[in-house]
Design a protein around this nucleic acid. Sequence first.
DNA 1: GCTGCAATTAACTACCTAGTGAGTTAAGCC
DNA 2: GGCTTAACTCACTAGGTAGTTAATTGCAGC
Lengths: 220, 220
Amino acid sequence: MTAVHPPARSAGRQRDAARTRAEILKVATEEFARQGYTGARVDEIAARIHTTKRMIYYYFGSKEQLFTAVLEHAYAGIRQQEQQLDVEHLDPAAAIRRLAELTFDHHEAHPDFIRLVSIENIHEAEHITASETIGRLNSPAIEVIGRILDEGRAQGVFTADVDAVDLHAMISAFCFFRVANRHTFGALFARDLTAADRREYYRTMLGDMVLGYLTGDHSG
Amino acid sequence: MTAVHPPARSAGRQRDAARTRAEILKVATEEFARQGYTGARVDEIAARIHTTKRMIYYYFGSKEQLFTAVLEHAYAGIRQQEQQLDVEHLDPAAAIRRLAELTFDHHEAHPDFIRLVSIENIHEAEHITASETIGRLNSPAIEVIGRILDEGRAQGVFTADVDAVDLHAMISAFCFFRVANRHTFGALFARDLTAADRREYYRTMLGDMVLGYLTGDHSG
DNA sequence: GCTGCAATTAACTACCTAGTGAGTTAAGCC
DNA sequence: GGCTTAACTCACTAGGTAGTTAATTGCAGC
């Protein structure tokens, strides 16, 4: 908490541990998201924020630990956003649709997060698994979905045999695929899943899909 | 000379261009799927089939071209399998469910393909885009879905405003996510999306979801 | 059995890359 | 001002890494 930052000195950066650490984390997030874990270069991260590679090892210990810190930070951001979910004042169908749309918007707004998750899956979630903090965070979204499902079933509008985690998977699958696989899908089928003028269409499609499932006929 | 080496004509593998090329492609597929494009090692691919790195450059020119060849080969395999789709003798609802289930089964049976597609998306589909052959292959699945949709609408059972490509995206999203993201999803929500004893449940869920969407109420 | 060429081998190059050893400088404290 | 230490810099290592040069060998056609 430096009250006054004197103007930058000619040689070397100002000494500000918190800022340096935060900058490393931010640029590392971009680099890992862009290049993948193996493709990211520690030197490049250092160069982009005008520090040295040595500082990265000073603060994070290793490339692996840096990547783990990046993932932890990214997931913490998501969970924080989920805390602000406010859909339970709606009727169950509207609440689920709204929640799905918020997931949809979130994925679209954070493509780098999507890339990080894809990359972490290529590595079979080894960093997340090793992380102390990520697993402990429980997901507000799951709890919200659980309560909406209970209410919807109590009212008799939801007929599907599904729990909150699997419904979350269904919603995430649609939102994630649309962003993560847009490049290959676009190349193969000549359709841009993230085109601005189709955005509302897909948002509605998602809600219709989830509600179609929850309220549909399940006799076979 | 090499009295110590009893079998084989002492030094070197047998000369068989087709076999060598095929082996390179097969092992390269595994390596790229496991390690990602940047993480894969040309030396390692060569070592695993007891040839030299030079042969890889002899047959494929560069690491990038090798990866492109791997993608081309993988996609060709898929399209070939799609040729054998035989669902149009069923009524539209059953046909769509069956087709979705075949996609589901295919994704589950080919996790390495899923990984390759994830990896190629990290690279923004640059290799697929550069490929001469992949784009030309048109997708039998899209055409089959298109005909089923037409028939379903003609019969009045399908009400959703969707075309074949977007419906294919919906089905793929569910199947792809379940395999591709199973590691992070499992670590975060303690649920194994690919557990054998939940397989039928998810298969049914997919069909219910797609048919719930196609036959559901779309008034909002 | 010789010859031309495709297939294969081995030994390189030139650069990259994660990680480190060890010293230097600024800031807070007395 | 002098001391302490966190924050920072610089130069280095040791092993990897894609790609190459050039020589060799087996096989098909003659």
